[in-house]
Amino acid sequence: MRKHITAAASAIAIALPAANAVAAATRSTAATVTPKKKVVTVTKTVKGTQIQAQEWGYIEVTLVVKKTTTTVGTKTTVARKITSVSVPIYPNHTNRSVFINQQALPMLEHEALAAQFTGGINMISGASDSSDAFIQSLQAALLAGKRA
């Protein structure tokens, strides 16, 4: 069954310190240069400094940057790619910030309603109350549980 994560996104805080964090990323180390063609890949995790996000509190962005240095003879090209962005410190110091984070953070797994047969089941949880169908399905489940 296919699953994906649904989250109510709160993008409010993410944009602000990105420039700062990218600046930190560019300071990562250079690759070794050799005469022949050589590709060196360095992956670094870099943190932006904590930044006051207006009245919402402090946030801090962490980037994972992959730096690929390709050397052919004397020519060197460098490519940097951001492979992930995360916000490890959430603004929490005002009631409004806490409210926004509570709205944003709960994660729910989302899938389509499926219908399965009741084989091998011991019990059924449902809002069936006193219906005869419930007793019948329960007995069937008990028997199926026996066979499982």
Partner: peptide, 20 residues
């Protein structure tokens, strides 16, 4: 050798379960 297996009643099909 087995845990309890509990079916969650399918809300639209009385003889099926939606999840185990």
């Amino acid at each position: 050798e087995l845990h309890w297996r509990v079916g969650i009643q399918h809300p639209l099909e009385p003889d099926r379960v939606a999840r185990v």
